[in-house]
């Protein structure tokens, strides 16, 4: 997905790091219809570049992202680590959006600085939308408070 260079929406800009095309389409439809800017990629490096350049208000991050050679890998963790390491991106809220369902995965997400954890299987897009809206709202309030 090419980044869109349209004006940043008030609602916010969402980066969806996901390899599953169907899901990307579903969330593209839902997020844009709700007034969000929508960016997506299934390439981890491209995702990092987009994060730094586009400065999304939120990143929806899948963990299990196969490498270009289709080898199954949990590349999401690498992305998360890199984003939190980079001063330009470390304050961007990351929502882990995955089918990995163990407490360990949740703990890991929290420790690595993710804002939230969403169990992909059990959630409807509507629920996800609501959660995204909440996080962006809270994040903006927090940043506003930090500035003052």
């Amino acid at each position: 997905m090419k980044p869109t260079n349209v004006m940043k929406s008030d609602k916010g800009r969402i980066l969806f790091v996901e390899d599953e095309k169907e899901l990307v389409n579903i969330y593209h439809y839902f997020l844009e219809s709700h007034g969000y800017d929508f960016l997506s990629t299934k390439d981890i490096n491209e995702a990092l570049m987009l994060t730094e350049l586009e400065q999304p208000d939120l990143v929806l991050l899948d963990i299990i992202i196969p490498k270009p050679d289709n080898a199954v890998a949990e590349q999401g963790w690498e992305y998360l680590a890199a984003v939190k390491k980079n001063p330009k991106t470390k304050n961007i809220p990351i929502v882990v959006f995955t089918n990995l369902d163990t407490p360990q995965d949740r703990d890991k997400s929290e420790k690595m600085g993710a804002e939230a954890y969403i169990f992909k299987r059990d959630c409807t897009p509507r629920e996800v939308m609501a959660e995204i809206a909440n996080i962006i709202k809270d994040d903006r309030e927090k940043k506003k408070a930090d500035k003052n």
């Binding site: 407490p103 929290e110 993710a114 804002e115 939230a116 169990f119 059990d122 629920e127 959660e131 996080i135």
Partner: peptide, 15 residues
């Protein structure tokens, strides 16, 4: 026992 396994589908981490 470990802390109860949360089967909550959405978890907000407290910063």
């Amino acid at each position: 026992q470990e802390k109860p396994v949360s089967r909550k589908k959405i978890v907000r981490f407290k910063k």
